[in-house]
């Protein structure tokens, strides 16, 4: 149960990796954009997804 609790604590970051990263990559590809600093769309998606997830985890909300 403790392990599950820890995993749930990282839920927003896991969501950032699992869902947001490929979604961000798909949006970039649709707009025919590449990631900054030479990153591929999926690499950029992973970075942004993890950052957004970490922020959401800290603030306990994705919005307000």
């Amino acid at each position: 149960m403790r392990l599950i609790g820890i995993a749930f604590g990282f839920g927003p970051i896991l969501f950032g990796i699992g869902f947001l990263a490929p979604m961000i990559a798909a949006i970039l590809e649709l707009a025919r954009l590449s990631g900054p600093f030479g990153l591929s769309p999926i690499q950029f998606g992973l970075v942004l997804g993890i950052v957004l997830g970490a922020v959401a985890r800290r603030r306990k909300t994705w919005l307000w």
Binding site: G18, F19, A26
Partner: peptide, 18 residues
């Protein structure tokens, strides 16, 4: 929650994100 996020991630990473 776990199963929903797993399904969403599986879809997203297998090219069905939209």
């Amino acid at each position: 929650r776990v199963s929903q996020y797993t399904i969403l991630a599986a879809l997203a990473w297998s090219g069905h994100v939209w």
